[in-house]
Write a protein that binds this DNA or RNA. Sequence first.
DNA 1: TACGCGACCGAAACCGGTTTCGTAAAGCCG
DNA 2: CGGCTTTACGAAACCGGTTTCGGTCGCGTA
Lengths: 359, 359
Amino acid sequence: MEEIRDTVSQGRGAARRVRISDLAEALGLTKSTVSRALNDYADIAPETRRRVAEMAAQMGYAPMPYAQAVRTGRVRALGLVLELDAPDRYGPFLADFLGGITQEATLEGWTLTVASSNSREEMEATVTRLLQEHKVDGFILPRTMVEDPRVAFLRAKHVPFVLFGRVGHGKPDPDLSWYDVDGAAAMRAAVARLVGLGHKRIGFVGPPSAYNFAVLRREGYQAGLAEAGIGFDPALEIMEVSDRAGGARAARDLLDLPDPPTAILYATDATALGAYDVARERGLRIGRELSVISYDGIPEGRMVDPPLTSFAVDSRHAGERLAALLIAQLRGADPASLQELVQARLEPGGSDGPPPANP
Amino acid sequence: MEEIRDTVSQGRGAARRVRISDLAEALGLTKSTVSRALNDYADIAPETRRRVAEMAAQMGYAPMPYAQAVRTGRVRALGLVLELDAPDRYGPFLADFLGGITQEATLEGWTLTVASSNSREEMEATVTRLLQEHKVDGFILPRTMVEDPRVAFLRAKHVPFVLFGRVGHGKPDPDLSWYDVDGAAAMRAAVARLVGLGHKRIGFVGPPSAYNFAVLRREGYQAGLAEAGIGFDPALEIMEVSDRAGGARAARDLLDLPDPPTAILYATDATALGAYDVARERGLRIGRELSVISYDGIPEGRMVDPPLTSFAVDSRHAGERLAALLIAQLRGADPASLQELVQARLEPGGSDGPPPANP
DNA sequence: TACGCGACCGAAACCGGTTTCGTAAAGCCG
DNA sequence: CGGCTTTACGAAACCGGTTTCGGTCGCGTA
């Protein structure tokens, strides 16, 4: 192996990377003292600490994370395993989500390592490898399930992680870190909005109930009905729907009921678009003969006619906060204290309106 | 700092990670010999090499990349910087693309580190940090520009990289590694298809010409015209269009010409959807009064009526090959030998047909 | 004035590998 | 059968940091 390494700097510029020993020499100290000064050990004089910090900044010193890792076991890297086998493939939010994570991580001097899996087995193998090679210090787990195998798996290995979404239905999740958008509250608000417009029969179309968010949104729907004093009719609720075609089928089934709903609440925009297809088929006008409200705020919802009334989530913010929560946890914060619930933002479109006068 | 580290294994299971010294001891060799055996040094007896490999497999030994990196400077990590300021935000392809990269990288024992930037300055700062911290060994650069600042930047730093797309117009790019889909060929084929249907006046709508793929696709369009013996009319070509609304504006401009085209070739599906909006506005039927062909193969193109005839690219394959090319380069292959050009796959829809009888 | 105790820093071991260098044993050759 | 190469491995340095362990110094106290 040729003696290249960092020494591309032979010519001009690029000033051969400064090591901690260079710093120590320049200061007339030993590298052990410099190291402790930089890491805020108590047995360093404040004045010395200041001098070291100053010289480090001046010389542009930055430690090499992997050299530190040999001793500390920490690489300052966050892990994210994308699940390629998920039904909706993350939609258009992935770029925002990754942008949020990486921007926040960069701010704190961390990086993001991403991997992917096509099955649960593959996911476990990937996580294991990442851990064994010490490529990451902790994980961000997107799209939680009610019974999430990843949680049990990582817990058993004592690996820090944060969840995007909660687990276990609606139970409090003690000593787990998570960030979630309050889908239940959004669904409640959606029901209230529809009731305010005069609707009495409101359908609900939800995703596979293995996903925690699906369950929470359904609960929000039912809670909304209860608050409005409307009885819950199981015939109006269709679960296990995950794509546009499924959303269309659900709409047909609901509209074919003896006493069909005048409004349908969809748990996701992608499925709500199916209602537009059915409306076209049957000559119904969305927002007039059929009202629709959904959740996610995908760009496509703004492009259809009429625009979809939807509760938008800020994926970028989610990424930022998840990164921040995980980093905090890795720095020693108590996981149980790292939980955030934010509200979705209503984006009114033209897809909801008063029910038709004579049904 | 407590003595935790890997020794969570005090109870059962988790068998304290096996180090190279454990391997050496079990074999009755020194760790230097074991290391050289594992790294295929010439001065190791074949029989010894075999024994070491066998024992390593048996004991489940895997070196820690960062410990190796202290000496070698290599961390077996690929870098990807997402450009958040790009006009189209990667669309729905990002998950596939990342899936391809990570699956291939995993196969070879590498990982992917992703970062993001909102501007050129931020991109350079991010790359510099990743390099300085030795978090990555090389980069994958998506979405190349005709004059790509990233290429000059990384070249000056002697950092290995591969391009998704070519640079510098259509020139051969010597000593650069790249993977690209032959957009020009697709556009030529599209023109031929339209001419075969009877079209004589064919418009073209392209993305910002700073992007290399935009230029190549335009050249393909013009080459297609030439092959068909149709003169090129500059009025029929509109560039710098990057979204659906822009695609709609372009369609209006083209249709408002004194001698309007009967078919429009769009360089991207996202912009082609704008033609559907205009068709609805003006009561034109796509595939009848107006033919449309485009490129990308986004899922939404399959959902519109009629389905969009488009040339689909396989983003997952692109990710896989880019990862493979970069890894090969990092292993010492000559960059100039690492260039791949693949063809897009035509997905016929209903958006193209014979021109109307009387224009 | 002798003693004890913090405060502060240096010396050296250590982390898990890689690479250089030296050398004993085996093979080659006449 | 002895000298000269090879062959194949061990010993030790090294990579860039962190952490442990002492030891010196100044100062308050008896």
